[in-house]
Design a protein around this nucleic acid. Structure first.
Lengths: 377, 377
DNA sequence: CCACTCTCTGCAAGCGCTTGCAAGCCCATT
DNA sequence: AATGGGCTTGCAAGCGCTTGCAGAGAGTGG
């Protein structure tokens, strides 16, 4: 008990010079106490109460070996008594580790991403880390700033959801060997650790399935053009047609944006063609719902008059309106794998980059069937 | 330039004792450098390059007055040259402020909440703060731990989305005058700053509108019973019936959970009653979609055979399937107001608590109409 | 020309914690 | 009984930054 006072004093006075400065120090301390609103117990308080040094308290908090059992219990009792909670910031500063990872994304409010987040959140929690979520809302100029701040003492590593083009800050991070993982980035990213779905192969398989059903005129509604997956999916579409010897008809290809409203209008356009498609593929389930709406409003029956194939397999796909046939990406798994990869990088940042490609799966439900009328090629 | 070395040295040696300890210090420094992976420039480096003291650099970074313009420019040039980024953690530790607020919620992946978050995110950004999002996934035992950690140096204030019962930690926070705001907590919360919608009055107005249309048998599908708003909405339902002199029929009241699937089954139950309702109110738009599905599967036309009234007015309400009549809560505004209140508390934590009740608005779209057949009361 | 007031800058202390080093302790071994 | 070595513990230094205080210039009025 008496030791404690000494320790505290030693701390306060380390390097102090004169009596006057001592007096000053005291008044400063008073002011600081007044300024700090929430004065909670520190390891020094715990040390005082339990009669050990502050470093021993620190060791107990961090579960170090080489602390006598009786001491550990005394310290833990003191912590419980005082309601001690470690000061995350101070610990981060001293140790250089924050036990938190950052997640940087443009938006969180779409069903695709919220599932990925779930996987991330779950795995981060398993690893004993915290998750710091930052949404940029497409303000690209804020993105670099966020990354700089986050990577600078706020988090130990970064998960980034990115469109096609690699921003400059990615190069910075790479040069510094800062641990980060790109999610759903199906474009070139030299030297980066990336997780994405097999967009190309998945789409090819889906289109091949439609062709196998007998479809020859297959509409393609793309995703946002600034997203890598969009191009890969189109490549898969092309590949499937090529393999089946079906010529690509530009009129059947429409640019979309993953969203329902655009899915509706794009489908309406396709359906009003002189030779409308008998099947439509969209780059997202949400957009596929829009296609279903357009089909309904055009008086078409799905799948009799029109087959619709989505991409993602979000939860709603199975129960909303018609059960949607779709190409499933393992969204939750993607989130989890991304975190696992990041954890590995945290342990050793120098390891060579890996691209992890998650397999997709064709999920046939009730919106796909052989074409009713054989269309003239 | 030469000053810098002195400053650094003075720092390193403050309180040092002997030559041996100096040597030790050096080797420690080396080890530390090796351990810290990302050695980025600090204010000391900027100070060295620009030839001023580190405190001047700090003042420039923080935009203090009393820095000569030429000095400021020199420092800024040095910062740009070195690519200096402030170390958030260190700054937080030294100043006691983190410039971040925490948001604690169970889930983020429902359309209700994602809109609230948008408002929060926007307003937080306007205020120049960062947002730290924590989801507890209903693991209540983790909640208290999160709050303790967050309130302990990670963030300056807390936004909390809470079910009915106030957890113990809320009392702690209050006792410590830690700034926090409860969102969507329509239950007693003495001494707490709370934001919620006018659940009771809004529902009463909605039900009154249905009664005015001529409905007498109005089904009520509640929200989750552990949420305060659920009870207030039921109270509004009761009040409207009472005012209209319509006796409450228990068979028309079903417990729900805000979700679509339960909305479907609950509606199916209501519709299979001997005397089914001619209108159904649900405590969320999402659940109302389930009701619409059940009506469709029961061969009923909406609104001819069944009126459906939701609550929330999420985005989908206006475009998904039938345009849904609903009671609009200003979700985005609620998020924004919560942040504004928190900012005010940050400035002065001692001010008396306020409950902010946001008005709701009846939005009549295409799922409500006078009953087709006059039902026998 | 001096006292006085502003403006500007530097120093030291400290935020709460981690961690290398060293010293003390205790026990087994020779 | 002395030595060695493994446990325990304490001390000091430092993580990168903020900030009160004091001192140094630069004006300004008497």
């Amino acid at each position: 008990m008496t030791t404690s006072g000494r320790i505290r004093a030693a701390r306060s006075l380390s390097g102090s010079s004169s009596a006057r400065s001592e007096a000053t120090a005291t008044s400063i301390e008073g002011a600081a106490l007044a300024a700090r609103r929430h004065t909670r117990p520190t390891i020094f308080d715990v040390a005082r109460v339990s009669g050990v040094s502050y470093s021993t308290v620190s060791r107990v908090v961090n579960g170090h070996a080489y602390v006598r059992e009786s001491t550990r219990q005394r310290v833990q009792a003191a912590m419980a008594e005082l309601g001690y909670v470690a000061h995350v910031t101070a610990r981060a500063l001293a140790s250089g580790r924050t036990q938190a990872v950052g997640l940087l994304a443009q938006e969180i409010d779409n069903p695709f991403f919220s599932v990925v987040i779930k996987g991330i959140d779950q795995e981060v929690s398993v690893a004993g880390y915290d998750l710091l979520l930052c949404t940029t809302h497409s303000r690209r100029e804020k993105e670099a700033e966020y990354v700089a701040r986050l990577s600078h003492g706020m988090v130990d590593g970064l998960l980034i959801v990115l469109p096609t083009r690699l921003p400059e800050y990615v190069e910075h991070l790479r040069a510094e060997q800062y641990p980060f993982v790109l999610i759903d980035h199906d474009s070139d990213a030299p030297g980066c650790n990336v997780i994405n779905a097999a967009n190309r192969d998945g789409t090819r398989a889906g289109i091949a399935y439609l062709i196998e059903l007998g479809h020859r005129r297959i509409g393609f509604i793309s995703g946002r053009p600034d997203v890598g997956a969009t191009h890969e999916r189109f490549a898969g579409y092309q590949a499937a047609l090529l393999e089946a010897g079906i010529p690509l008809d530009d009129r059947l290809v429409v640019e979309g944006d993953f969203l329902e409203s655009r899915g509706y209008t794009a489908a309406a356009d396709l359906l009003s063609l002189a030779q409308p498609p008998t099947a439509i593929f969209t780059s997202s389930d949400v957009a596929a719902f829009g296609v279903l709406g357009a089909a309904r409003d055009a008086g078409l029956q799905v799948p009799r008059d029109l087959s619709v194939l989505g991409f993602d397999d979000i939860e709603e796909a199975s129960y909303r309106g018609a059960a949607l046939s779709t190409i499933r990406q393992p969204l939750r798994e993607m989130g989890r794998v991304a975190v696992q990869r990041l954890m590995s990088l945290l342990a050793d940042p120098s390891q060579p980059a890996i691209r992890t490609v998650m397999e997709t799966e064709l999920v046939v439900r009730q919106t796909t069937a052989p074409p009713h009328r054989v269309s003239s090629t």
